[in-house]
């Protein structure tokens, strides 16, 4: 589905990415973990078409896509959820869904999405700025689901959320994966990400260092050293 080979790039200053190589197969859930400042979010921006400078190869189903705008990528089925509260405060919940419906070529109806996100139904008329953090993140995922994407790029969806809400978010991601959506997830909460993902990459100083199945990496002492920084087995879920 998605393949990055030797990707470098940044914001105009020093390079943030210095050699990122990774692959997401069709229907696969891949996590990208690493210490703060490793460049995880920058990788997603490079794929999503919002990073000012990108070198190297980014291919979507074998087709080069670097330099495409987010709008062109959306037409190819790529949906990007940036980090933070990604809602428009003055638009209502329903308007967020309608906004995506008007933009994505293979969009579902808001009704079909609401059946999968019943928690949003009573909030349809509420402005997104008035929702809780968890509700906002659910809205983002519902909006992404409405686009019926083929590849979803998610940046730190659990940031600042209560543990119970984090589980809701990961349940929604698992549900999307179950419907055949390929997912590339960037997550600070590495344990939770590795537990959910099929495969994962560890990023350090702008380079992909390690690759492996989620559970394997979780128990890899090099990962513990590089990133988790503590004995792994005791605290793994």
């Amino acid at each position: 589905m998605l393949e990055l080979r030797g990707v470098a790039g940044g914001y105009g200053g020093p390079q943030v990415l210095r050699g990122v190589t990774l692959r997401v197969a069709a229907g696969e859930f891949v996590a990208l973990i690493g210490p703060n400042g490793a460049g995880k979010s920058t990788v997603l921006k490079a794929v999503a078409g919002v990073l000012p400078r990108v070198e190297g190869e980014i291919a979507l189903e074998g087709r080069p896509v670097q330099g495409l705008s987010p709008r062109a990528l959306l037409a190819l089925g790529v949906v990007y959820l940036p980090q933070g509260r990604n809602v428009f405060p003055s638009l209502t919940v329903l308007e967020h869904l309608e906004l995506m419906r008007d933009l994505a070529p293979h969009a579902l109806s808001p009704e079909a999405v609401l059946e999968r996100f019943p928690a949003l139904r009573p909030l349809l008329g509420r402005r997104a700025g008035l929702l809780s953090g968890g509700q906002q993140q659910l809205l983002c995922l519902a909006r992404a689901a409405l686009a019926s994407p083929r590849l979803l790029l998610v940046d730190e969806p659990s940031l600042g959320l209560a543990p119970r809400v984090v589980e809701d978010v990961f349940a929604a991601l698992a549900d999307l994966r179950g419907r055949g959506v390929s997912i590339l997830l960037v997550e600070q909460n590495a344990r939770r990400a590795l537990a959910a993902a099929d495969r994962a990459y560890v990023l350090e100083l702008g380079r992909t260092r390690l690759e492996g199945r989620g559970r394997e990496l979780l128990e890899d002492p090099r990962v513990a050293q590089l990133y988790l920084g503590a004995p792994v087995s005791a605290s793994a879920p």
Binding site: V50, L74, S90, M100, L103, A104
Partner: peptide, 23 residues
Amino acid sequence: TALGRQIRATADNFDLAVAMGVP
């Protein structure tokens, strides 16, 4: 209207609107 939603989305958060593919 759809145009109105896109205008308000762009006004609310320009960068997010770009990232989302809003024209």
